[in-house]
């Protein structure tokens, strides 16, 4: 810190042509600053911790609390205007009947997330063995990462164009296209934690041992490799499921008349049904939180 302050001062003073004097004075200044820095460094390190903690609370925790708080406050009527039509209760269960829309969306969300995750897992498991067994595996792994890097709306658009009515006409926008889109980005999401587990578990050694004991290649995968990969598979499944539930951009483009929860929230906001959107967000946060706890339980011994 001292250097950062001294250097520009010294530079300016030298430019001004008073170098002989400035050296003396800046040196003294430097010494003084260093002293302050030394004294402050202990207090500063504690300050740093506090700042980081405050930042996390401010940026991560408070918005969530605000959402929860708003739901509670505006449950029966709007806290500012007192209008009943702008309450959570009215919008959900009253004439706008957003609750049934939310239930429908929940069904679509869970159905597409589970089917997509299931199919993606079935693809991911052999993919991991492919990546590990062959030389071109690294290339394959790199290709698989593309859906993770491509912005999700671009991914959704490309899938809509290719498989939708304009392309091969495999499926109309709706739940099946949602599932297809989710499979595309779920495979790498499951493959990565599985690969990490594979690399930490010496599977080739154990497989070799099993083979010498009389197990065929198929036996070995079933009784050795998959049980050893279990933790990675579970982690991948939960990650993929959570991501499917929260995905918005791509789903928006391919969902047609069906809708999952996150696009529903966007639609609610656009229809200025803010209280309903608040409730839906709370609902989504709660589901994600439960899944996060599940993920922790699975990944820690």
């Amino acid at each position: 810190m001292a250097t950062a302050i001294i250097l520009p001062i010294e530079f300016i003073l030298q430019k001004q042509g008073i170098s002989s004097f400035s050296i003396f004075s800046t040196l003294r200044l430097e010494k003084g600053l260093l002293k302050i820095e030394k004294f402050a460094s202990k207090k500063l390190s504690r300050l740093r911790d506090v700042v980081v903690l405050l930042f996390i609370i401010l940026v991560v925790v408070i918005p969530i609390i605000v959402v929860l708080n708003s739901v509670v406050l505006s449950w029966s009527s709007d806290p500012d205007t007192g209008k009943v039509t702008e309450s959570v209760n009215y919008q959900l269960f009253g004439p706008p009947n957003y609750f049934s829309a939310l239930l429908d969306a929940t069904f679509v969300s869970f159905a597409s997330a589970s089917i997509a995750t299931y199919i993606a897992t079935c693809i991911a498991i052999p993919t991991v063995f492919l990546i590990k067994r062959y030389r071109f595996g690294r290339f394959l792994r790199a290709i698989l990462r593309i859906p993770l890097i491509v912005p999700t709306s671009a991914l959704g658009l490309s899938i809509l164009l290719l498989w939708g009515p304009e392309g091969f006409n495999l499926a109309n926008p709706g739940i099946w296209l949602i599932i297809l889109t989710h499979i595309v980005f779920s495979v790498p999401v499951i493959v990565e934690p599985m690969l990490a587990t594979f690399e930490g578990s010496e599977i080739p050694l154990y497989s070799g041992a099993a083979r010498t004991l009389g197990a065929t290649q198929y036996n070995t995968v079933e009784s050795i490799s998959l049980p050893l990969l279990k933790r990675g598979i579970m982690a991948g499944v939960i990650l993929s499921f959570t991501r499917s539930l929260g995905e918005t951009g791509a789903t928006f483009l391919v969902m047609g008349s069906h809708t999952t929860i996150p696009p529903l929230v966007v639609n609610m906001v656009e229809a200025l049904a803010i209280p309903a959107a608040l409730f839906a967000s709370t609902y989504l946060i709660a589901i994600s939180f439960v899944l996060l706890m599940l993920f922790r339980k699975v990944t820690t011994r």
Binding site: E202, A209, R211, T216
Partner: peptide
């Protein structure tokens, strides 16, 4: 393949499952 050779193999790293 190993499973058709009928050998017992002991590894340095034990390789117990």
């Amino acid at each position: 393949p190993p499973e058709e050779r009928d050998v017992g193999y002991v590894f340095q790293e034990y390789a117990l499952f």
